[in-house]
Simulated assay, not measured.
Amino acid sequence: MENAQQKITTFLMFDGKAEEAMNYYVATFDQAEILSIRRYGANEGGAEGSVLHATFSLYGQVFMCIDSSTKHEFTFTPAISLYVTCTTDDEIERYFEKLSQGGQVLMPLGEYPGIGKFAWLADKYGVSWQLNLQKNA
């Protein structure tokens, strides 16, 4: 369910893969759901049937996404990432395994001084994720 208290929402712009990415994230994380999808119709600027606007939630955090109707030279960058606090070894390992498939590992899953068990990656859609194990979270 959309969080009425959330004032700022992460917005993800895809190039034809918004619905595929949403389904991937909802299947990867527990407590995740697609909240709404509006699609481009005929002659509406975007590819008919692609995502005009959609929302999904991961652990109550709402995200918006679209399939851009305009081709751009840019995509996602690791300068902004989604930071996931994990509470068990199984959780961080499961997320790392799933999100790194077809993506790029920026920092391998491992123990880092001052950080603990951590990984940083860009998934197959180019979205950057930081995974951190905090057993007392």
Rank of each mutant, 00 (worst) to 15 (best):
F76T: 01
Y95C: 03
E44W: 07
L133R: 14
V51L: 06
F29E: 02
M22T: 13
S50T: 15
M64Q: 14
F63R: 06
L131C: 03
F96P: 12
N23M: 09
F11R: 07
I80L: 08
A4N: 08
Y40P: 03
W129K: 08
G49A: 11
G126F: 02
A79C: 09
D67T: 11
P78E: 06
Q6R: 09
T85M: 12
F29T: 00
D15C: 05
F29W: 10
F11S: 05
Y24V: 06
G110M: 03
N43K: 12
L106R: 14
N43C: 10
Y95L: 15
F74W: 12
Y83T: 08
M13Q: 12
F74H: 10
Q31T: 12
Q6F: 09
M107T: 10
Y95E: 02
D89L: 13
L82E: 01
F118S: 02
T85S: 12
K124T: 01
T28K: 10
E48T: 15
M13N: 12
E93W: 10
L52M: 15
Y25V: 08
I34F: 04
N136V: 06
E93C: 13
E111G: 01
L58D: 01
C65G: 08
I92H: 06
W120E: 04
P113N: 04
T87V: 13
A137N: 08
V51I: 15
V105Q: 05
K7Q: 12
Q104D: 06
G114Y: 14
T75F: 01
D67I: 00
C86L: 03
D90Q: 14
Q61H: 13
N3R: 14
F14C: 02
I80R: 02
T28L: 02
M107K: 13
A54V: 09
T88F: 12
G41C: 07
T10H: 07
A27L: 08
E20D: 13
F56S: 02
G46L: 10
N136Y: 11
Q5A: 12
H53K: 03
